[in-house]
Design a protein around this nucleic acid. Structure first.
Lengths: 341, 341
DNA sequence: AGGAATCTTGCAAACGTTTGCATTTTACCG
DNA sequence: CGGTAAAATGCAAACGTTTGCAAGATTCCT
């Protein structure tokens, strides 16, 4: 005994607490919310009791009444390649930073992964659930149009992805086309002439990277870049890369991989074929994930600033929640020269 | 005109919908919930209107009334090393699988990262928020005791982590001690005699892995294993590993890294020092993350079945939600022999 | 056709907070 | 000390659903 003197009666609702404190529920609510119009003494007393009993006001009720939840939805649409993002280090890292940033700003994060193909309604359903104050979409996947539509009628949404001229939804992302240019320029500076692009250009970000590379190839009078489409999941990509290499080997001397992950796979595939990198073939990746500093030889790549991306997403979203209109935010990519090109 | 004939009046609440359908709100609720006791025709009509207006019942209100939210909380306590999990591929991958598994079972996922040091109340606060039906804790960090306490008074909680004899909270995790044994045995089988353990053993999982390795060393009459503590984030770990290597080089011929990430860093550190792997030093990791198949030479490691872990966590949690008592689930690790040992 | 059994619906009270308004208490001033 | 301004509290109505209970409408059987 003694120590269980506290926490006698269970106090689950603000009304219980009010009874204990000898005041009305309204006063308790105000005290706990830190409003100024409650007497210092009463507030202290209420806070003491609350602390003693570990009381937390029910967020559902609060949310219902205030018509806001303090929760931001984060949704990852899984496009063509359902298994994709599970292994996608990039998105997962972005998610980590998002979680930090949102917490910092006092919001909770509700995560949802959806397969738009099976559920055309994915975005409206999330928004209409009444569970979230705003939504961050990670990756446009192949849902650009759907997102545009929704953006017309719903303000608090920000999307990670590619920025296209004149689009209506607010997006944060790296300048993929510029990144693509930087990559191609580096490959060429390293001595490559006949380039290939490794990755699926139906993904809009990748298409932009490819386009950037082609800008350069055209400008320099090089032959068109060969497209080598692959899936993103390592299991499937490995085989596809192997097949691609067998086909184009000898006809290329530079590879621009849409992703560091793909680049790493490509690197091992090249090694097993006895192709020297960067001797016979120059290779460059995209993202600058941790893996890029662990391959042998070290991977040259185009870096995306993921932390800045997360900060930008949250910042813009909160400003939109406050009613502001916001422009999209395009982040500069940065070439990181290591050993493969 | 024509196409905007639909969606005339905004229908935000179940009551709006009821008015439109000419029935009472109760009936609408029942129809939308798929209860059997509503006439087929009325249901159809209601569903049609709902579809037409893209109506979704407010989950906050529903949650409040039903006293359940359909949301599972997932919390990652950040222990000693705050920056840790952001780069921790393992936790992020587990999170991905969790998201899939929960979605499959019809639950949403609310993610929270907390720093227990700054917020002693982290777990109670989450649970008491009234926002979640149950909670999954990813990693015990240094919060074992706190979790035990909470487990006494709160049922629907499952934890990813290490299982200790007689603990009270329900845990899912790999048999770390066994994994540690497998690792040490492999190192020794590959010819190593003087072992070191790379990683911070204040983390309970790592301590168990270390203990397993020591079991073997003792049994085989080898000298005690040298502990080389490091942080988990690559930035800090790199330097620490370098310093460690400079100290112990020549006195060891086998390294058991607590994590593949650490192993990969160690591998590059060894390379820059001109140490042959596995010639001079054998190396083994833990987890079998994607990176393990991309290092040169390929990393021998102890695999954790992350997908099975996620399934186990969700499965046990839902059973606990249903009122069942559940035992902890210990998953077998699996040695994956590649090239470094 | 009459009545019981079965389906459908409506009514209204919750769920736990927040907040505008009214009311009481306290403080202040001449 | 009387009176007014200001501060603190209480009251009660929302927020949008769900659901037990009762009433109304159908169906079925004899």
């Amino acid at each position: 005994m003694g120590e269980d003197r506290t926490a006698r009666t269970a106090v689950r609702t603000i009304t219980d607490l009010a009874r204990l404190a000898g005041v009305s529920p309204g006063t308790v609510s105000r005290a706990l919310a830190g409003k100024s119009l409650v007497n210092a003494k009463t507030r202290e007393k209420i806070e003491a009791i609350a602390r003693e009993h570990g009381f937390r006001p029910n967020q559902m009720a609060s949310g219902l009444r205030r018509q806001k939840t303090g929760v931001i939805g984060v949704v990852i649409p899984l496009g063509h390649d359902t298994r994709q993002q599970i292994s996608d280090t990039f998105f997962m890292t972005l998610l980590g930073f998002l979680a930090d940033e949102l917490t910092l700003r006092g919001y909770d994060l509700m995560l949802r992964r959806v397969v738009p193909k099976d559920d055309a309604d994915w975005l409206d359903r999330f928004i209409g659930s009444g569970m979230i104050d705003g939504v961050i979409v990670i990756g446009q996947s192949d849902q650009f149009d759907r997102i545009e539509e929704v953006a017309d009628g719903y303000g608090p949404m920000v999307v990670w992805g590619n920025h296209a001229e004149g689009q209506r939804h607010c997006v944060v992302g790296t300048d993929n086309r510029l990144g693509g240019r930087q990559a191609a320029e580096r490959l060429i500076a390293a001595g490559a002439q006949r380039l290939a692009f490794l990755g699926d250009t139906t993904a809009i970000e990748f298409a932009a990277r490819f386009a950037g590379a082609e800008d350069v190839a055209r400008r320099m009078g090089l032959p068109p870049i060969i497209e080598l489409p692959t899936h993103l999941s390592p299991e499937r990509a490995s085989d596809e890369i192997a097949r691609h290499l067998d086909t184009v080997m000898g006809r290329i001397d530079g590879i621009f991989a849409a992703t560091d992950t793909l680049a790493a796979l490509c690197l091992t595939a090249l090694r097993t074929r006895g192709v020297a990198v960067p001797g016979d073939i120059k290779l460059i990746g995209f993202d600058d994930l941790p893996i890029a500093s662990h391959t042998v030889p070290l991977l040259t790549t185009v870096k995306q600033d993921i932390a800045a991306g997360a900060r930008g997403l949250v910042d813009l979203l909160l400003r939109r929640l406050a009613g502001e209109q916001t422009e999209s935010l395009v982040l500069p990519p940065q070439l990181v020269v290591r050993q493969t090109a």
